[in-house]
Simulated assay, not measured.
Amino acid sequence: MPERLAFQSIADDGFAQLRQQAMAFVEARQRQGFRFVETQRGASLQIHCKGVPVLWLERRPQHLTMRVSLDAGQRAPDVLLLRSFLERRLEPLDYMEQVLVGVPEPVLMDRLLLAMAGDVAGGARCEGWSYDSTGRWAA
């Protein structure tokens, strides 16, 4: 079950910039098993770790949704850096706005099930590089 966060809607050029950052992130980590998947140009994209979606970005007329899988910290820790980087460029909806647009926060049960599921196998992880101070994804 992915974690969801909703943000204020953004213009085409703003989404294009987020897309470029996501692509640069993946290009720097292809050897670790990351892949960029554009499900709808200008509106929706995903980042996969060895075939498993770990980050989704979906642009709707009323808001932008960013979801990160609950096991991303184990499966693809670097994707959490990307999430933080992208979040800084967005204006979040407050809790009530998220509820009104149908974007609930993950429930405690989801987190408990994840904790009980155990660790992600080493071969299913994507580990590697981080974001450097020059504004680029690097080793």
Rank of each mutant, 00 (worst) to 15 (best):
residue 21 Q to K: 13
residue 60 R to Q: 13
residue 59 R to W: 06
residue 113 L to E: 13
residue 64 L to N: 08
residue 40 Q to W: 13
residue 24 A to H: 05
residue 9 S to P: 01
residue 33 G to T: 02
residue 107 V to L: 11
residue 79 V to R: 01
residue 105 E to I: 07
residue 105 E to P: 08
residue 58 E to H: 12
residue 52 V to I: 11
residue 41 R to D: 11
residue 4 R to Y: 15
residue 9 S to I: 00
residue 75 R to P: 03
residue 95 Y to S: 12
residue 53 P to T: 11
residue 44 S to P: 03
residue 6 A to H: 00
residue 86 L to M: 15
residue 84 S to Q: 14
residue 8 Q to K: 14
residue 89 R to Y: 03
residue 106 P to E: 12
residue 66 M to F: 03
residue 95 Y to N: 07
residue 30 Q to P: 03
residue 57 L to N: 02
residue 65 T to F: 00
residue 116 M to G: 11
residue 72 A to L: 05
residue 14 G to Y: 06
residue 52 V to N: 10
residue 17 Q to V: 11
residue 85 F to Y: 12
residue 15 F to D: 09
residue 42 G to Y: 10
residue 92 P to N: 01
residue 16 A to W: 05
residue 18 L to D: 03
residue 126 C to Y: 00
residue 124 A to D: 14
residue 26 V to L: 01
residue 23 M to Q: 15
residue 78 D to P: 12
residue 27 E to I: 09
residue 64 L to A: 02
residue 115 A to Q: 15
residue 99 V to N: 07
residue 104 P to Y: 07
residue 105 E to T: 04
residue 47 I to N: 05
residue 59 R to G: 01
residue 84 S to A: 12
residue 4 R to Q: 15
residue 59 R to C: 08
residue 10 I to C: 09
residue 23 M to A: 14
residue 79 V to M: 02
residue 28 A to R: 12
residue 77 P to K: 02
residue 78 D to W: 00
residue 54 V to E: 02
residue 35 R to M: 09
residue 74 Q to D: 15
residue 6 A to K: 02
residue 113 L to S: 09
residue 102 G to E: 04
residue 27 E to H: 09
residue 79 V to D: 02
residue 23 M to S: 14
residue 36 F to S: 04
residue 131 Y to Q: 08
residue 50 K to T: 08
residue 46 Q to V: 05
residue 127 E to V: 12
residue 14 G to W: 10
residue 91 E to L: 13
residue 53 P to N: 05
residue 119 D to I: 04
residue 42 G to V: 11
residue 126 C to T: 08
residue 125 R to M: 03
residue 107 V to Y: 06
residue 59 R to P: 07
residue 62 Q to H: 13
residue 96 M to L: 13
residue 81 L to E: 13
residue 46 Q to E: 12
residue 56 W to K: 08
residue 9 S to N: 11
residue 131 Y to D: 00
residue 121 A to W: 06
residue 73 G to M: 04
residue 15 F to S: 04
residue 6 A to V: 05
residue 42 G to Q: 00
residue 95 Y to Q: 12
residue 98 Q to W: 06
residue 84 S to K: 15
residue 131 Y to I: 07
residue 119 D to Y: 00
residue 64 L to T: 10
residue 99 V to E: 13
residue 15 F to W: 09
residue 82 L to T: 06
residue 109 M to Q: 11
residue 66 M to T: 00
residue 6 A to E: 00
residue 20 Q to E: 11
residue 129 W to Q: 06
residue 110 D to R: 06
residue 112 L to A: 13
residue 134 T to Q: 13
residue 31 R to C: 01
residue 108 L to T: 09
residue 129 W to G: 12
residue 53 P to R: 06
residue 35 R to W: 05
residue 110 D to T: 13
residue 58 E to S: 14
residue 80 L to I: 08
residue 110 D to I: 01
residue 74 Q to T: 09
residue 92 P to F: 07
residue 137 W to I: 06
residue 70 L to V: 14
residue 5 L to A: 14
residue 92 P to K: 05
residue 125 R to D: 00
residue 10 I to T: 10
residue 104 P to K: 04
residue 28 A to D: 11
residue 60 R to W: 13
residue 12 D to M: 09
residue 14 G to H: 09
residue 53 P to A: 08
residue 118 G to W: 01
residue 18 L to S: 04
residue 75 R to M: 04
residue 110 D to S: 15
residue 66 M to K: 08
residue 124 A to Y: 02
residue 44 S to K: 13
residue 110 D to Q: 14
residue 75 R to C: 10
residue 92 P to D: 08
residue 120 V to F: 05
